[in-house]
Amino acid sequence: MARRAIDEGYKVRCLVRSSKKAAFLKEWGAELVPGNLRYPDTLAEALVGVTQVIDASTSRPTDSLSIKQVDWDGKVALIQAAKAAGVERFIFFSILDADKYPEVPLMEIKRCTELFLAESGLNYTILRLAGFMQGLIGQYGIPILESQPVWVTGNSSPIAYMDTQDIAKFAIRALSVPETQNQTFPVVGTRAWSAEEIINLCERLSGKDARVTRMPITLLRAVRGLMRFFQWGWNVADRLAFTEVLASGKELNASMDEVYTIFGLDPQQTTTLESYLQEYFSRIMKKLKELDYQKNKNKNKKEKPKKTPFKQSSKANSQ
């Protein structure tokens, strides 16, 4: 999103926890300001002079912080700071069908944040996503290439994954389209894919067979229940709860016809999952062939012709 906003002529400021990790954003032309959603006093200064906010923050599995600390407490602090700073537009990323899973912490928090934002008085646009194509590389692509197990949970829900580059198009376009103000839109891919379909596609593109391991949803529920007994396990339990969405069998998808019309974007230019994975595997397979060729080339260089005493003896006898 930062890359696209810069390319379209916007002056971009990025709130970052680590300037070192975000150095590439500065190289692109973005201004970096240190801050943290957990510390509201860092937000006011960061928002000085800012007219539009695109909120792409969220807690990650590798973080020590809980979903509630980042995706609720942090979001509330950011929305309040944006309101105080006089921000003209606030773009928020939610999850499709969040209102249908009140027992799943992340989904319920997204639903509550939508309501809080709508009642804040800010001019907003909410984009409800289904899933990122980029996440499929680690979930399916790499394990299949490395002959590692691919984990599938329960009755997998078909999900309309979208390339983050395409999501960025909608986010940046929302800033300049008046019809998107104070509205909520689904932003999803061209079609929904089940785990089995994605695995079959990866097998075909990579030429390798997948080692599929199914994890019973009942077992994950039991583990989640056990984690809830310990305070240190609450964050893990909350994340395991999201498997209820992935294993429900209910399709995570929505019609995008009206959305494309309002945003003035061409659906034919949206990346399909087939083309995204095909490009990934083509690049990887090409790289693997190059590495294998270079390896064999270096090996041949190291191998010197062997001199045998038999050849020397034969030459001496002929003389």
Rank of each mutant, 00 (worst) to 15 (best):
E146S: 03
T213Q: 13
M1Q: 04
D99N: 15
I167P: 09
A237L: 06
Y140H: 02
L106D: 13
V188F: 12
E114F: 07
L277V: 09
M1R: 02
I109C: 08
G249W: 15
T190H: 07
F116S: 07
F310H: 15
E244H: 12
A171D: 03
M107N: 13
T184D: 10
R38C: 00
K287S: 14
L37H: 03
M133R: 04
K304F: 02
A23F: 09
K21Q: 06
A168D: 05
Y293S: 14
I172M: 08
M285W: 06
E146D: 01
R3I: 01
K21N: 03
L65C: 11
T164N: 14
A192G: 14
D257Y: 00
A160W: 02
P178T: 08
I159T: 14
I198E: 01
L201G: 09
S314Y: 12
R4P: 07
F132Y: 09
F132V: 08
R191I: 15
I67M: 05
T243E: 07
F132S: 05
V245F: 12
K315D: 15
T153V: 04
S156M: 04
R4E: 03
Y124E: 01
S120G: 08
E103H: 15
R128F: 00
G9R: 03
A84S: 11
A2L: 09
T218Y: 09
F132A: 08
Q294D: 08
L15R: 05
W193P: 14
E27F: 12
D97T: 15
G49S: 13
V50R: 06
L201Y: 06
D238Y: 06
C112T: 12
L175D: 04
S313W: 14
Y140E: 01
N155H: 13
A2Q: 04
S157R: 01
Q80G: 03
G49E: 11
E114L: 04
W72T: 04
T218L: 12
V152E: 01
N253D: 11
G9N: 08
G74E: 04
L273T: 07
C202P: 02
A81D: 00
S147W: 00
E114C: 05
A222I: 01
K169H: 08
W151F: 08
I91S: 11
R60V: 02
G131M: 03
Q139V: 06
L205C: 09
P34T: 00
T190K: 05
S94P: 05
K250W: 15
P149G: 04
L129F: 09
M256H: 00
G86N: 10
L117V: 02
Q183R: 10
S64E: 02
S57M: 07
A237W: 09
I67V: 12
F90K: 05
S59H: 11
N123P: 07
R111P: 13
S59E: 11
G9T: 12
S19N: 00
T62Y: 06
R228Q: 11
V48G: 08
E244A: 11
E274Y: 00
E114D: 06
Y140L: 01
E290P: 10
Q319D: 13
K289G: 10
K302D: 01
K68W: 02
Q319E: 15
A247L: 10
T184E: 11
R283Y: 07
G131H: 03
K208A: 15
R17Q: 00
R60Q: 12
